[in-house]
């Protein structure tokens, strides 16, 4: 497929979707993470279990909801439970393979802020954790989708709502937290991981047409590049077809 035949959002959704493996249990929120998860379920991973923290498992919505508390999202579910039933008996029990998050800021060590931002002399409170902090603590892997801007990909988040590798190295385990095998950040410019001893953010693949300079300019600190940094694989026609015609035909997120 030619790189002019898809949008950046479509590329992000496809890239994230390909990171999910069939049979995994995924806790997900609305927006692009949900789009990516549904794409995986409709293509290479039909046996994904999709769990929403409010206590909803494997719904098949036909109308777009405004959030996870919208009954539109619950249509044709396989299981209804409580907060404790989803984040307790599944996540805390250790059965979640991937927690898929968004956030206001993400830092050099993969910590995510979804609580608020310092503006001049005050702290502007936005939303807070909900289940996000719990999901980041107990999922085996954490994926996040974010806009690549230097005020969003930062040296240190204003507020650690959800834990990544804290201060890097072994600091996460030293704090007593469960191990996290992998954190991946998918942005409009590149994909980043933390697969080095310092547990510091590094670029794993660069999206087609994007330069290293662009990534550096839009990152709030001196970002590292993996030794064998790749070009992000292009979406195939089937994936783009599914996104446009099945997953998000009204183009709410894509």
């Amino acid at each position: 497929m030619n790189s002019t035949d898809f949008t950046t959002n479509e590329l992000m959704a496809v890239t994230a979707s390909r990171m999910l493996e069939d049979g995994q249990n995924i806790v997900v929120g609305l927006g692009l993470p949900q789009v990516a998860t549904l794409l995986a379920k409709n293509s290479h991973a039909p046996n994904l279990n999709i769990i929403y923290e409010i206590g909803v498992v494997n719904p098949e919505s036909v109308d777009t909801g405004v959030g996870i508390a919208d009954p539109r999202l619950w249509y044709r579910s396989e299981y209804f439970t409580s907060f404790v039933g989803s984040l307790g008996s599944v996540l805390h029990r250790g059965l979640v393979d991937v927690g898929f998050l968004g956030g206001l800021q993400i830092d050099k060590f993969g910590n995510i802020n979804s609580t608020g931002i310092y503006e001049k002399d005050r702290f502007r409170h936005i939303n807070g954790s909900g289940g996000a902090a719990d999901i980041a603590s107990y999922s085996k892997k954490v994926f996040a989708i974010a806009k690549h801007q230097n005020r969003k990909i930062v040296e240190l988040v204003d507020f650690i709502t959800t834990v990544g590798y804290l201060k890097g190295g072994t600091s996460r385990e030293d704090t007593g937290l469960p191990k996290c095998k992998d954190i991946r950040i998918i942005t409009n410019l590149c994909v980043m991981n933390f697969n080095n001893e310092a547990r510091e953010m590094q670029v794993e693949s660069i999206h087609p047409g994007v330069t290293r300079e662009q990534i550096k300019e839009n990152t709030g600190f001196d970002i590292k590049f993996d030794m064998d940094v790749k070009i992000t694989d292009l979406p195939d026609e089937k994936e783009i077809y599914l996104l446009r015609n099945v997953i998000d035909p009204k183009k709410i997120y894509i």
Binding site: H92, A133, S137, I160, T161, V163, L166, P178
Partner: peptide
């Protein structure tokens, strides 16, 4: 007993 909240600003 749990490990949630460890390491957070909360």
């Amino acid at each position: 007993p749990t490990k949630i909240l460890l390491g957070t600003a909360m």
